[in-house]
Structure formats: C-alpha cells, structure tokens
Design a protein around this nucleic acid. Structure first.
Lengths: 152, 152
DNA sequence: TATTGTTATACTCTATAACTATA
DNA sequence: TATAGTTATAGAGTATAACAATA
C-alpha cells in the first residue's frame, strides 16, 4: 500500500538542532560499537576505561575518572566489573592510603587490543560517510567543547 | 595539597575516538538543555516531539516516530505525557482507523516557543566554542550519517 | 500478512547522596 | 576540612516482544 518515499528524512526542525543531531549520531555510533564489542565481552564505557588505564600505565581511580570525564562512582562500578573479569587489578597506593591504583593485567591488555580493533571496525560505516578532513574539524570541536565545559 | 594542574584533559586514546567524543559532547550539551528546559517543564525528547508535530502540522504517530528517528513505542510514551499535559491531542484518522493523528494545542504551541528559546539559550555555550562554519561542517556530517544508517 | 498503536518489561549510561577511611 | 573510594538508589533515554485492531 501507498507508494512510500523510502528515504528516511529528519524533520527540518531537528536537522538544525545541535542537541538532537549530536545525540542521535552518538547513539547510532554507540549501537554499532556495542554490537561489535559483544563477542569481546565489553561494553563501550568499559573499553574506555581500559584505554585510559593503558594510556596512564597505572593510575588512581580518581585520575581515571578525570581522564574519562566520568563521575568517580561510575568508574568504581565499571572497574568492579573489569576487576572481576581479571582485566585489571586494584593495588594499594604506597603514597596515599585512600587511593587505589589500577593496572591492566596481560589478559586486560589482550582484550583491550581485541576491543579496539572491533570498535575501529564498527566505526568504518561512520568514516565511509564522514571524510577525514571533516572528521578532523569535528574532532577538534568536540574536544574543545568537552574540555571547556567544567565537569559539574 | 598538590599543586594540581587544573586543566581537565582527555586521555589521548579518547581524544581520537569518534564514539567517545560524540557521546560525551552529546551528553554535555543535553545536560545544559535539560537544565534550561526545567522551568518550561519539558525534557529534551519531549521538545523534539513538539518540534516535529509542529513541522508536520498534524501527523500520525508513526510519521512522528520516523521523523524523529525514534521507535514508535518510545513515541507513544512521550506523547502520552504531552497529551496529559494538554500540549497536544490525539485525533482519530479519517482514512486509516489504525492511526492516531497528533496535533498541537494552543498551549502546546506556546510551550514549544518557550522551550525552543530556552534550548537555544542553553546551546549558546556550545556556539561560543564552535564557530558557525565549523558547526555547518558538523551539522552536514551528522545529518548525512543519521539519515544513512538504517533504523533497525 | 503487514502495519498502527499500546503495554509490559528491561537495559545502558550516568549521576546524587550518604558513608568510611584516610589526608 | 577535603579527598578517595564505596554503596544504595534513581532517573533519563531508548528499545524489544507480544498483543489487539485494522489494513
């Protein structure tokens, strides 16, 4: 029934809304990454934690939270799961007994590698649509914006 | 204690990840919009629905869902709330008795206007950081990406 | 058979508040 | 007093599955 125009089109009001567009694109991309990470057994924010811990070599949870721009309670929960799966360990800090230092295990490094590859694959559809020079503009804007807005 | 470097910096691994950057920027902007919409009594997705219904003048819920790129069950729930608050009405379709046609009330149009202004104000911090020509690049990329990926 | 709308349910992501232990 | 981490809780945003009515 109905000779439907099969092209899905955004409502004009939404096609000019930064909030809507950023949100929907982010969700679409995250769905793709989530799917690709399933066989690896990771969720996107867990991969983020592994990446940051790897970047820092070893860091207090509070530092991880700061580098991810996430609340420390969120990081605690994510690290709980990663620790249970032996992807990282919590060590006591020698200099501040309140802190827990987080470090990747060999297994964690392996899963990080697999996860990164899977995520990269999942993002290929994005990069088939967004050209490298366009992405570089976007990337710089996004980083600037994220780092400019104070974490509440 | 500690002469802390107060600049919050992203972990390098995340500063090049489209998934992470899009997600975090979207959430930051949405938090700002959510805050600005509070006095108006709207959540961001509710404003989205009002905008789309206004764009379409009057439309079946399925059309609204398609134009928002949202699932129809999500739209049902959002419209439930908006209808209870008398911001829109559901009418029976004369041509297809399965459909419900949605239309803004005068109050709905008024709230839409207030909400749009509030959202625009909230996005000013974003536009202080992202230049108009940069945003135009981003906007086109985001629209292209959203419209290219088939809704699952 | 396929589509519209509804309902029940569930999941991801993330935060706030209150706490303990340190500093 | 302030910070690090934990726990309990909550909420926004969105989807899937199953269903009734209709096409």
């Amino acid at each position: 029934m109905m000779p439907v125009n099969d092209k899905k089109m955004l409502s004009p009001a939404l096609a000019s809304s930064p909030g809507f567009l950023l949100n929907k694109a982010a969700r679409t991309l995250r769905d793709a990454v989530t799917e690709a990470l399933k066989p690896v057994g990771l969720l996107p924010p867990e991969l983020g934690i592994l990446r940051v811990v790897h970047d820092e070599e070893a860091a207090a949870q509070s530092v991880v939270a700061e580098r991810c721009f996430l609340d420390r309670t969120t990081v605690t929960a994510l690290i709980d799961n990663l620790e249970q799966r032996k992807l990282l360990v919590r060590e006591a800090s020698t200099t501040d007994r309140r802190q827990k230092i987080v470090r990747l295990t060999p297994l964690g490094r392996q899963i990080l590698t697999r996860g990164s590859k899977a995520a990269t694959r999942a993002q290929q559809e994005f990069f088939q649509i967004v050209l490298p020079e366009e992405w570089e503009v976007m990337r710089q804007c996004l980083v600037r914006y994220i780092e400019a807005v104070p974490a509440e």
